[in-house]
């Protein structure tokens, strides 16, 4: 492979440190209630794409679907070193489910010529569906290598160490392919001052549904395959059980864990 043409998917999510809530009317995310940041796992996806670009040469394009203010997340990825961006923004997308989202993202990726690799985070911290990378691979007709903790490209082959609760699996596929990365993949770089100053000059293409040839009636809350009927905040954490150590603390903790069938 001469150089790599890499697409990274990023998502703007509510900051996990701020209070997150759903709107009362349609149970969609209340985006105004919390600070919006680029999802941390996406920073790792961007980092991995940049490492691959640095090793093989090429270009990194960020693709993001989200409201206007997602430009902040896009700019962060550009300031880290991504070369250009595609921002899909359309009011009709509000409330779209994972399948609709995957279809829109697939359409946007098809507008980019000669993509060798699509890199995504394995799941977002807000919805936590964790399904987009697989759906996208299916729609694009590409191999999927998900939950990567290590990614290598040699020639026209991508090799991945996949880590899940079931253990570690070694996967390999011919490019082009879709890779999703896990938390352990890398430590994302800080944007450099030069990167921050350069980000504004990098091209960002904004696409609406019309540009992608998607009918607004196919997407959004009304057409979603899933619907949220009810939502309630997580109950506050209970006080827990207190064990006073009177020389038998260790034994009593093990007894407690055994009663919970944890040991």
């Amino acid at each position: 492979m001469e150089t790599m043409n890499i697409v990274v998917l990023i998502k703007q999510v509510p900051d996990t440190w701020s209070e997150r809530k759903l709107t009362d009317t349609d149970h969609t995310l209340d985006r105004d209630a919390a600070d919006a940041v680029i999802d941390e796992i996406n920073e790792r996806a961007v980092e991995e794409a940049l490492l691959l670009k640095e090793a093989h040469g090429g270009k990194v394009t960020v693709v993001s679907m989200g409201p206007d203010r997602a430009t902040d997340a896009i700019r962060k990825a550009l300031s880290m070193g991504a070369d250009e961006a595609v921002h899909i923004s359309d009011a009709a997308l509000h409330g779209s489910d994972t399948i609709q989202t995957a279809k829109v993202l697939a359409s946007a990726i098809r507008t980019i010529e000669g993509v060798d690799l699509v890199v995504a985070g394995n799941e977002a911290t807000d919805g936590r569906a964790g399904a987009i990378p697989a759906m996208l691979a299916e729609l694009l007709g590409l191999p999927q290598l998900t939950h990567a903790r290590r990614v290598e490209v040699e020639g026209t082959e991508v090799r991945v160490e996949r880590e899940t609760e079931d253990g570690i699996t070694h996967l390999a596929a011919e490019l082009p392919a879709v890779v999703s990365v896990g938390e352990k993949i890398n430590e994302p770089r800080y944007p450099s001052f030069k990167g921050i100053m350069a980000a504004k000059k990098k091209p960002v293409t904004t696409l609406g549904l019309g540009d992608l040839g998607i009918d607004p009636s196919e997407v959004g809350l009304a057409a979603a395959f899933t619907s949220v009927v009810e939502s309630a905040p997580k109950p506050p954490r209970g006080a827990g059980e207190r064990v006073e150590d009177q020389g038998d603390g260790g034994v009593r903790i093990v007894e407690y864990l055994a009663a919970q069938k944890l040991v």
């Binding site: 800080y190 944007p191 921050i196």
Partner: peptide, 15 residues
């Protein structure tokens, strides 16, 4: 500017 805000946030995160 947006850039100045980003500079400040990046350094604050680093600190």
């Amino acid at each position: 500017t947006d850039e100045q805000r980003a500079l400040r946030e990046t350094v604050a995160d680093f600190a």
